[in-house]
């Protein structure tokens, strides 16, 4: 079964499955213990190292299991964990399990441009106003019409007493907002990178007094970024390309890492994201097999009632027109051949002397004949006329 097409072959919206996009990805931690080595942590000894790679380890059970930051003895106390996802994903949730006393303030950010710029997705803090200048999140989600970065008052407590950062995009979106119909929500869930900033440790009191601080380090494991490889409804899976980059396996005449544009010949209508109602597949231009390239013309598209805007380029086989559907000057349609036949257009072959021009009727092939001349190519004198010696008036009335 093809998830991107109906049984009859009609296109339908398709999306890749929900995955942990962070699994196996490199995590960049701004602080990791073990350099220089201490009794508890030594980055050069696998048995005592706590690298950031442990956060997204694929398979197996590692020992130790938790990443640990360096001891935080003075401000700033921020430690960030950054996960480049390798391509755009549509987020569903982000979670991180803390292995020791969790921080009291955590900021969650995302980038849509591979780490060049960042925007907040949410905050977790018992002091939302103090740490992030925000009010605690309302119980029933954001008040505004669109999703927004809310400050949640606390982390989740697990049955075993541990703490979990659990962020769901649903919690920061107003109820009823639909991904298919809301470009704002589509933008909100789109991310290429995730950053978790552990802002304030729980065990430290007044952070302005570095003398009073107790050495502390952050420790966490199982960083998960739940999401779908973003393909705009035009692919059911993502694959690694020859250079090891994750890309959508695009269908519906689309291409690009996210199926974000139409393939070169598929520009009969503008690119659109697929929805549950309509696949919005890119359509191939109609060129009767005589052109390999086409371009989109918005004016023609509007005039056609938003049906077709493709204009064929470089029509071959002596054809011409927007769809290579008629013959170019000096050629006429052979009625015995199909429009897509390579020899559908025949040369007019107008007689150099008997014809008054080189262009024949595109349908019948009839050349324009001089007075007294007849025949499809104007190569004979009409009855009652005879050939003269003048190439200007090749046929004269028979005396």
């Amino acid at each position: 079964a093809d998830p991107c097409h109906e049984e009859g072959g009609a296109p339908r919206a398709c999306v890749p499955g929900l995955v942990n996009a962070a699994l196996g990805r490199e995590v960049l931690a701004s602080s990791t213990c073990g350099q220089p080595p201490t009794q508890a942590c030594d980055s050069s000894d696998p048995r005592r190292a706590h690298p950031a790679a442990l956060l997204t380890l694929a398979g197996g059970t590692a020992s130790p299991v938790c990443w640990r930051s360096d001891l935080l003895t003075q401000a700033p106390l921020n430690v960030s964990l950054t996960v480049p996802l390798g391509k755009t994903f549509e987020l569903v949730f982000v979670s991180l399990r803390f292995c020791s006393t969790p921080p009291t303030s955590v900021a969650l950010l995302k980038s849509q441009d591979h780490g060049r710029s960042w925007v907040p997705l949410g905050f977790f803090s018992s002091c939302c106003g103090l740490d992030y200048g925000r009010l605690p999140a309302p119980a029933n989600g954001p008040a505004g019409p669109g999703p927004e970065a809310l400050c949640f008052p606390e982390l989740q407590t697990q049955p075993d007493g541990g703490s979990l950062l659990a962020f769901s995009v649903q919690d920061s979106s107003p109820p009823g907002l639909d991904l298919d119909s809301s470009p704002v929500l589509q933008d909100w869930v789109t991310a290429t990178d995730i950053r978790i900033v552990l802002t304030r440790p729980a065990m430290l009191g007044d952070t302005s007094d570095s003398e009073a601080m107790v050495p502390y380090s952050y420790s966490a494991a199982e960083l998960q970024v739940g999401g779908r490889c973003k393909c705009n409804g035009h692919a059911s899976r993502c694959l690694l390309d020859t250079q090891g980059h994750l890309i959508c396996d695009c269908r519906h005449g689309t291409e690009g890492p996210d199926c974000g544009r139409c393939k070169p010949f598929y520009c009969d209508r503008p690119w659109q994201r697929a929805t549950a109602r309509e696949a919005h597949a890119c359509l191939a231009c109609s060129c009767n097999g005589h052109a390999r390239r086409c371009r989109f013309n918005m004016e023609l598209y509007r005039l056609s009632g938003r049906r077709s805007g493709g204009v064929c380029l470089n029509c071959r086989h002596n054809t011409a027109g927007r769809h290579c559907h008629y013959c170019r000057e000096g050629f006429y349609r052979d009625p015995g051949r199909a429009p897509n036949d390579r020899r559908a257009c025949r040369a007019c072959d107008c007689h150099p002397v008997g014809a008054a021009g080189k262009t024949c009727n595109q349908t019948t092939g009839q050349c324009p004949c001089k007075d007294g001349v007849t025949g499809l190519t104007c190569n004979r004198c009409a009855p009652g006329f005879q050939q003269s010696r003048s190439p200007v008036a090749p046929c004269v009335k028979t005396p």
């Binding site: 007689h351 002397v353 004979r380 006329f385 050939q387 010696r389 003048s390 190439p391």
Partner: peptide, 23 residues
């Protein structure tokens, strides 16, 4: 009546050299 095709050899190009088709 089927008339013969125009015989190019019969035409006198003396005054119309510029119109003469290439052979």
């Amino acid at each position: 009546e089927v008339m013969p095709t125009l015989d190019m050899a019969l035409f006198d190009w003396t005054d119309y050299e510029d119109l003469k088709p290439e052979a």
